[in-house]
Write a protein that binds this DNA or RNA. Structure first.
Length: 475
RNA sequence: GGUGGAGUGGCUGAGCGGCCCAAAGCAACAGCCUGCAAAGCUGUAAACCCACGGGUUCAAAUCCCGUCUCCACCUCCA
């Protein structure tokens, strides 16, 4: 394994070594299911899907845990607005997220725990923190429990901040807090909230704070020490800082690497509800084919800002079409479809990967360089077709299929499916027109041949004249 | 105010001391191919030499100092 990853805590690229040989545990902060999935959620999920794929290619057994935060202020608030039960609203949006992930062929995580299913683990962790002297029940008699950030000397280590530099909100109500920077581990039940959103504890009725959820779920599924903790850049502070502090204070080694993916901006601006510029998953999928959306979201380096604006999907469409056209032509020419498919563990796939691609992936998942390798190979393959060199073509095709399989953009994996009866009927119809056009061309009746081509084009079908005959495809 | 990141061809976006007279894609132009196209290939043009001004070095887009601009986080957020 020669993979290096940028570790946010070390603020440096570090060589990645699994804690347990051959296995990798990844915890990824999933969404709070309080609304519809947007482009940022998809990018985040995609980044770790790609990481997971690359680890699998390197024969590591990956356990990916991505949680669902299904209890939270916003969930309760939004449910009040719609009149739904909070858990019904949360599940409704959870399904929307799963639909969007599936559309982009982002594989489901190994485990997808909901916060509400890990309450006992959270309470255990809170107890350990109280015993260690780093947590305390609110001093105003409520059921609130806080983490004493001000007592944890290493607080700020993840984001390289000194606790004294953190400007405490002047107007913040301390209520039962000893220090303004202390944060809630457990939140007392509030008068207006439904009783179904409260759990009885020795502190009183209440619900979990956001940060404790992830600490508890990560260790529940991956143990007190695991390889990688990931999430969006916006979660570094306070969420991940707080997770690290509480887990460390409880004596857990916690994550070996911290990864943060860059955010998606819209025309240079942060996406936000108040600006009304959010791009939702449904918007993307309405504007472009899923494989194109996946290509676009994965085209920039995972740590850089990805800007969404007019035209980016068209550009991605062209690039994807180039790859698809090549694969189609190559398979048609070579006849065999005994091509490399989705098995990431196969020796064949590994053997077919160009060195430049593997190097790019190993260097902190340098996606642009990896895509450059894909396109280089596409060009080499196209040249081989022109030169009639089938051996070189086979090599290029295998390389392209292997690389795109790793990236999750193998055209064969996105094909609509085997020929259905409808496809066969359509093919019969179009073949008849192709024959008629061929006859017209032989007779030099170009008006007629062009009319046929234009008619099909208008119906969304493109004809392509190749050396071995005319082929058609749906636009 | 604190912390982190970014300014590279028309656009997207790599490179982060010599392999860079700067990858790859998109867009443009020309040639080949074609009856004409499309697709494909080949080539061309395109970055006042990589925000600006200094410096270090045999050597800098890449390191250092200064300046300007932009973005993110410090409040719920992927």
């Amino acid at each position: 394994m020669s993979l290096s990853l940028f570790d946010s805590r070390a603020q440096a690229v570090r060589a990645f070594e699994p804690i347990v040989a051959g296995k990798v545990g990844i915890y990824l902060c999933g969404p709070t299911v309080q609304g519809l999935p947007h482009v940022g959620h998809l990018r985040s999920a995609l980044v770790y899907d790609q990481l997971r794929r690359w680890l699998k290619v390197n024969l590591l057994e990956v356990t990916l845990v991505r949680n669902v935060t299904d209890i939270d202020d916003k969930v309760l608030e939004n449910a009040k607005g719609t009149g739904e039960q909070w858990w019904a609203l949360a599940y409704r949006f959870e399904l929307e997220f799963n639909r969007a992930y599936a559309a982009l062929q982002i594989a489901p995580p190994t485990y997808e725990p909901r916060a509400t299913a890990a309450i006992p683990e959270m309470l255990d962790l809170i107890d350990r923190l109280i015993a260690a002297g780093y947590a305390y029940q609110a001093e105003d008699g409520s059921a609130d429990v806080y983490f004493a950030a001000s007592r944890w000397a290493k607080y700020g280590e993840l984001t390289n901040q000194k606790i004294d530099d953190m400007a405490p909100d002047a107007d913040v109500e301390l209520r039962g807090k000893r220090d303004a920077r202390d944060f809630a581990l457990w939140k007392a039940h509030k008068a207006g909230d439904p009783s179904s959103a409260a759990w009885n504890t020795r502190f009183g009725a209440g619900r979990p704070g956001w940060h404790i959820e992830c600490s508890a779920m990560a260790t529940k599924y991956l143990g007190s020490q695991f390889d990688i903790h990931g999430g969006g850049l916006d979660l570094r502070f306070p969420h991940h800082e707080n997770e690290l502090a509480q887990s460390s204070a409880a004596g857990d080694a916690f994550a070996n690497f911290w990864l943060h993916n860059g955010l998606v901006n819209v025309s240079g601006q942060k996406m936000s509800k108040s600006l009304g510029n959010s791009i939702f998953a449904a918007d993307l999928l309405a504007a472009a084919r899923p494989i194109v959306v996946r290509y676009y979201l994965g085209s920039a380096h995972y740590r850089s800002v990805l800007d969404y604006h007019e035209g980016v999907l068209d550009e991605a469409e062209s690039a994807v079409a180039r790859i698809e056209t090549f694969v189609e032509k190559a398979i048609r020419r070579l006849g065999s479809t005994a091509a490399i498919r989705a098995d990431l563990n196969s020796d064949e796939l590994r053997a077919a990967l160009p060195a430049a691609f593997a190097k790019a992936m190993d260097e902190d998942l340098a996606m642009p360089a990896a895509l450059a390798a894909v396109h280089d190979e596409v060009r080499a393959g196209n040249s081989a077709i022109d030169a009639g060199d089938d051996s070189a073509l086979k090599t290029a095709l295998d390389a392209v299929l292997a690389m795109t399989t790793v990236l999750g953009i193998n055209p064969l994996d996105w094909a609509v499916g085997a020929n259905s009866g409808n496809d066969q009927a359509l093919d019969n119809l179009i073949q008849a027109l192709i024959e008629e056009r061929k006859a017209a061309r032989t007779d030099k009746d170009f008006a007629r041949s062009d009319a046929i081509r234009n008619q099909l084009q208008a119906a969304g079908i493109t004809l392509e004249d190749a050396a071995d005959g005319t082929h058609w495809s749906v636009n």
